[in-house]
Design a protein around this nucleic acid. Structure first.
Ligand SMILES: NC(=O)c1ccc[n+]([C@@H]2O[C@H](COP(=O)([O-])OP(=O)(O)OC[C@H]3O[C@@H](n4cnc5c(N)ncnc54)[C@H](O)[C@@H]3O)[C@@H](O)[C@H]2O)c1
Ligand SMILES: NC(=O)c1ccc[n+]([C@@H]2O[C@H](COP(=O)([O-])OP(=O)(O)OC[C@H]3O[C@@H](n4cnc5c(N)ncnc54)[C@H](O)[C@@H]3O)[C@@H](O)[C@H]2O)c1
Lengths: 251, 251
DNA sequence: AGGAGCTTGTGAACGTGAGAACAAAATCGG
DNA sequence: CCGATTTTGTTCTCACGTTCACAAGCTCCT
């Protein structure tokens, strides 16, 4: 995303050290599955085993792994430890990445308390908030610091990843500050579309959207042949008034 | 089979009341953008306006909307309220969906405190946990209840959506219980692949995976031509020992 | 040593999604 | 009433992603 190689339009850009985005999104799942197998004392696994553990089909898994190189052994399978290292290296989690979290409210607290990041290659180096009442609060072995200190922290700790858990309103401002400070990857939880310059990657997590996608399919299930057909085209004046369905941008 | 009227393999099964999955995933984003425009007092918007607000390109937006019907006016654009209602109806959030949350730890608390669900068509009807110390705790206007009460709650409140925020270990068991109780859509936050029977939809949110995807691209940025090439094939014996990179299944 | 039996890696077929481009339909000014 | 202008809805093409199917390659047994 954002980081297009060099826009060569010609041939399919064969393995120019580039892995398809869909594959990149699955590598962490494979990594998790391999770690689970490893923890169970399993030393070798076939693509079938791995695929089952990762919840995908085995052809897809093999093709995904083939982008990294030939790390399996025909007739045998994959060495769990070896493959785990190769995937970790490819993703980049053999090193630790410094992360700041901005907005230590409900969600920020939960993330700050979460132990799972440290074991997966990420180190939270600061919890930032603009609310003076929060600054100074201790969470685990960290302390909430003033958002104004962002720039010095980013520089001192070489922070490249920022997590935004503020309300939607200030999210774009916070994002701009992060980018200006030198952060080049952002994970956004606020329900708003953030714009960033080229070279900065952004991903979003929106729980309401996930629920709405489930609701869509849920509606299909019940309505398969049961519900009385919903009115197709209610007159444009006099809509059944939605009590703010869809939700505003509000916190 | 060959001549059966269902499962026609020929043409792309033109609009058999089916909307492409990629489009379904964007409809909530459009809904949010429309709500924001509506709140700003804007009554009409062109596909270009809407696309900007939603962070997509306008051709894609128009094509997405065309799956729902012809709700725009050529030369003018879309009536914001009208389109908002149509999308809300298509997604199914003109009605309220009952939701239970299982596992009221760090993340469960954050979700329980979140006001954004109610305004988007979802009603949290129960917070469930297996820990007796948590049962009875008040969060907002709700009280944590015993997980054992799951079945009666699902039946009483016609719950169709369940959210899992337990540790990875018990997640599959919790999932099975939810399904057995009648829940047919599940949103899973535990870092583990859950298996469900046909007819049950499942979506996952995994923050570590999001961070790892960012890390992959981040690595590419710095390594574009700078880093000394990482050793391509370390000997299979004597791997640089990862201090549990990839993270176990542990909570 | 040689063949049987597995399992990987990949070429090719198929399906889905994205974006450019444009004809059709609506408004508006004269 | 007509033509200029705007913007939608749709068609066409290309890119991307998934799945099938199988030759290549490895191990093990006889
Ligand atoms: N809590 C949830 O379960 C949940 C679910 C889905 C989405 N979200 C989204 O996540 C975000 C955070 O949710 P929350 O419930 O934690 O909200 P919250 O109100 O509890 O916390 C927001 C925090 O951000 C801080 N903040 C506000 N402006 C700031 C600024 N300019 N700079 C730095 N910090 C600032 C506030 O002081 C507060 O501590 C919101 O955008 C919300 O929509 C939350
Ligand atoms: N907290 C985060 O920021 C975060 C981030 C990423 C992923 N996660 C994942 O989300 C999940 C929850 O995280 P958390 O930090 O809230 O964990 P937590 O340990 O704080 O909370 C888990 C809760 O689940 C309850 N529970 C355990 N077994 C149960 C069972 N069988 N039935 C019902 N309830 C049960 C526990 O009593 C506890 O209250 C974990 O799987 C974690 O890996 C959390």
């Amino acid at each position: 995303m954002t980081r297009a190689s060099s826009r060569r339009p010609g041939p399919p850009t064969r393995t120019e050290r580039g892995i398809p985005e869909a594959t990149v999104a699955r590598l962490p799942v494979y990594l998790r599955a391999l770690t689970a197998l490893s923890d169970s004392g399993i030393a070798t696994a076939s693509s079938e085993d791995l695929a089952t553990a990762a919840g995908v089909n085995s052809a897809k898994l093999r093709k995904d792994l083939s982008y990294l190189g030939s790390y399996g052994t025909r007739g045998v399978g994959y060495d769990v430890e070896y493959l785990r290292y190769q995937i970790a290296r490819e993703i980049g989690v053999t090193q630790d990445w410094a992360v700041v979290i901005v907005g230590i409210g409900n969600l920020g607290h939960a993330l700050a308390n979460y132990s799972g990041f440290g074991t997966r290659g990420f180190r939270i180096v600061a919890l930032l908030d603009a609310d003076p009442n929060l600054v100074g609060e201790r969470i685990g072995d960290m302390e909430v610091r003033d958002f104004a200190q962002l720039e010095e922290i980013v520089e001192a700790d070489r922070v490249s990843i920022g997590v935004i858990t503020t309300p939607a309103g200030p999210a774009q401002d916070v994002c701009d500050r992060l980018v200006a400070a030198g952060v080049t990857s952002i994970l956004n939880f606020a329900p708003v579309v953030l714009s960033v310059p080229d070279g900065v990657d952004i991903r979003k997590v929106d729980l309401s959207i996930e629920l709405q996608i489930l609701a869509y399919h849920e509606q299909r299930k019940s309505g398969e042949a049961a519900l009385p057909q919903v009115p197709e085209l209610p007159a444009m004046n006099g809509l059944p008034d939605l009590p703010s369905v869809g939700g505003g941008v509000g916190a």
